[in-house]
Design a binder for these strands. Structure first.
Lengths: 330, 330
DNA sequence: ACACTCCGTGAAACGGTTTGCAGAGTTGGG
DNA sequence: CCCAACTCTGCAAACCGTTTCACGGAGTGT
């Protein structure tokens, strides 16, 4: 059925070894022979069988990516980065959608382990025990999380918070709310840390609220609490929440950025599609995906550079403005 | 390194065949032996090597999914459906992000073909020639597209348009704009067909505009054209466009749904997060993904049921309202 | 004639699993 | 008590397409 190296060999009138070499070590075969082989392969539509190749080389040409939820724009962006970089290196990606369930996650990692050259793991909330059970099966790199010496690509959330706080401070805001996401999230911790460092330095009072679910609804829920605390600006854990905030503020008749400034986190596509385009801290999600695959592929010893930090950047759009004369409290 | 069937056999003090059988044909081994094997496997953390199994059974336990862009919420939803259903059947999914490039698409299909049991192909715009070159390598099922006898799962876009038009007609609208998406899209054709059938039947005049890119910007661009044509409602090719329309209408001071009704297509998550939650035609994207995998897995002869139609449904939210007294033209 | 290079060949891995076949043990009927 | 039938387990081959090792033949320079 499928066309193999043998068919190509027969058509090109050479041996299978020659065909193999024509592809893998081209300058070891005579140019003329190579031409014959390549032509035969072309007209037969030959594609090397990666599984069989992996059998002998030990490298499968596949890389695994596990995310908690593909439909979440943050993770689909990371995934896209992985896929792009993998394709550049002639690799294919295995996707595991863990459906937010750590047990499933571990199980998927196990199922993939044998047929991939490495796994990039985006699981902000999986507990360490599960994680360590899984280590060693296959080279692993974490995204946006550090855990016991495992290589990781990290986004500098704390610095993002600093930029956001400085921006607000420069606009004259002196009392801002921070809407925190899931308590167990590594990124969440870092952001909180950044906040606690940046706020005093900028002479800003930060009101910490939450934790809230990192969703649109979470933002809705958080808004009323923030309003009750008399802040003039809100910094949300992510864009989804920020959009919820925008929505709720509109419903309560608070104008943005007139009466209240709002900043999100991530810079998902949707952030620039709100009625007032959202000021947000851009997380380099695709870049992180690419970097993770880089580490997996380039590095024979994946422990060489344990952590790769990627910068974040504040994108100022339309939801932040100078401090209003009178804060919005109702 | 990896724990194999042999390790389990040694620990359980049985032969490898018995271990194999304990997993694949459980009632062929003595219950007590089976218990011993299962326990040994458990404590060793044994996971069968799917690649090796595929070697002899011919089935890999993998299914391939190719989409033009994972970051597009429509496709990530389909993908999620595929992943969910695949996991239920103990399968893993291979993802190929074709980056909107048909050549890449064909290449990826080729690369995956040998290591999957079937491929679900979401490529609304790939040309037929490329498509046929790829057929036969591996069982294939199309999503939202019909092409020469290939099995497909389809969403009833035309009926969705009918529902939308009837809804608008019932609200008193008599002149509506349809903002079409990419000309070569199968879904687009069907929607246009549905429109041309439904509009006269409902005594509604449909102004066809476009094609526009199926994006936020496309919606922005289309809005001014629609306004110039003096319509009271807009039906957009997808939610992304509809959100662009909402945005542009707000910028031009046209109130929604007061002066203009807007309907989208797809019902992506974002549709319910706009300032006025978007009325839209829900496309069963996840269900489509699941159905596609179903066809691939359940059906030994994938030609049995060539086309599976999934219903669409109008979700009425806040962007549609009865016809205003005076249409918004400026 | 010898050594050497260049290029191509045949055949052996590669490897974890499934599976056909046979044998060991047990049961039951004649 | 013997043989047939049945149940369970073990041995070893087969599975796949590729890479790669060891080798040989032809040509070339010395």
């Amino acid at each position: 059925m499928a066309v193999t190296i043998h068919h190509v060999a027969r058509v090109a009138e050479v041996s299978v070894s020659t065909v193999s070499r024509a592809f893998t070590v081209p300058d070891m075969v005579h140019p003329q022979t190579r031409r014959k082989v390549l032509q035969a392969a072309e007209e037969l539509g030959y594609q090397p069988n990666r599984a069989a190749r992996g059998l002998v080389t030990g490298r499968t040409g596949n890389i695994g990516v596990v995310v908690p939820d593909v439909a979440n724009p943050f993770f689909s962006a990371v995934l896209k980065g992985c896929a792009a970089r993998a394709r550049g290196a002639q690799h294919v990606v295995f996707l595991a959608d863990a459906a937010e369930d750590p047990r499933v996650e571990a199980e998927m990692v196990g199922a993939m382990a044998k047929q991939v050259d490495g796994i990039v793991l985006c699981s902000p909330r999986e507990n360490s025990a599960e994680l360590h059970r899984v280590v060693g099966t296959s080279p692993l790199v974490l995204v946006n999380r550090v855990e016991g010496g495992l290589p990781a690509v990290l986004m500098d959330s704390a610095d993002g918070v600093r930029q956001a706080v400085e921006h607000l401070a420069a606009l004259g805001h002196r009392r801002i709310a921070y809407l925190s996401g899931p308590a167990a999230s590594w990124a969440g911790e870092k952001r909180l840390g950044g906040l606690r460092a940046a706020a005093p330095a900028c002479d800003v009072e930060a009101v910490e609220l939450g934790p809230f679910p990192p969703t649109f609804q979470g933002g809705i829920q958080a808004t009323d609490l923030a309003l009750a605390r008399g802040v003039t600006a809100v910094l949300a854990f992510n864009d989804l929440m920020a959009i919820g905030v925008l929505n709720r503020l509109a419903a309560r008749g608070v104008s943005v950025p007139g009466q209240m400034s709002v900043i999100g986190f991530d810079d998902i596509e949707m952030a620039s599609m709100t009625t007032e385009p959202l000021t947000t801290v851009q997380m380099p999600m695709e870049a992180a995906g690419r970097a993770a695959v880089d580490i997996l592929l380039d590095d024979p010893q994946p422990a060489t550079e344990l952590q790769r930090w990627l910068p974040t950047q504040l994108i100022v759009r339309s939801t932040t403005a100078p401090l209003p004369a009178t804060p919005a409290t109702r």
